[in-house]
Amino acid sequence: MSAPLFRAVTMARRLDTGIMERQNTIWRILLLAIPLAVFSIFIVWPLLNSFYYSFTNWNGFNAEYDFVGLKNFSKVLTTRLFTNAAINTLIWMVAAIVLPSLAGLGLALLLDSKIRGANVFKSIFYLPICLSAIVVGQIWVWIFQPDWGLLNMAISAISGEPFTYAWLAKPGSAIYAVIVAWSWQQTGLSMVIFLAGLTGIPQDLTEVAEIEGATRWQRTWHVVLPLLRPATVVVIALSVINSLKGFDILYIMTGGGPFNSSDTLAMYMYNESFKKYRMGYGSAISVILFLITLTIIFIYFRQLKKVDEIYD
């Protein structure tokens, strides 16, 4: 190839590459713009609005409102109802992390061993997560129904005496009854994540532990559980975030009652904003909830980084 021709071909190639790169960039921006627009409209904009209204006394209807500064926040943080909701959220969160995580881990360990019909059981245990929280809530409302609910009927049948405890109507048991329903639904999700984690553990590691003299329990404790740490971090993070968002199942089963005994921060925020028409006050609660969630996500990412540092 002669030198001028070579230069021309090289230039044409560069030109081609330049055009293609520009086209690629336009496509990338276009394709990213769609989810970004959706995210902005439905997440970022309401979030910014919440921040804005948390400094106002807006009632949710009128066009007029006043700026009240940090008054909503100081009120929220000093009211007994907020403390009650915060304690309930903590109970709800801890239970919602511990119960489904432990049950999911147990099921995953059980179903990962070569037992007959494991796939059928996996599907059955995963099924509740496919149902909406409203449906799950309604099922458990029926189960907890004092007169003809499955639970009381079972207790009556076993004890031989009529048992009509109103699980959802008593302040001492309402939130725990909802936690049971929530755990029943969330266990399938934890199980699936732990099963995926177990699949990623090389068989060589458990085999070498076996040769080194580890019993089945020791293999689980010293090898399997530590290697499930990445899955555990995901399960816990999801449980925390889901539990903080937990609203619909509470709304269906107790509505935060009786006597605010099952009120969580999300429930409290809803009641203040939409039932009592105190949108500014409700927004302040939502901002506090947002900051708590953000802190947990921050901790989650730090844990994730630590996990990455250990594992390949």
């Binding site: 090389p202 085999e207 076996e210 040769i211 090898v223 594992y311």
Partner: peptide, 20 residues
Amino acid sequence: VPPSQRGVSMVFQSYALFPH
């Protein structure tokens, strides 16, 4: 006899080292 009581030790292709 179970593996741990056979008086053998094994080195795997993947090294099989516990990452944690």
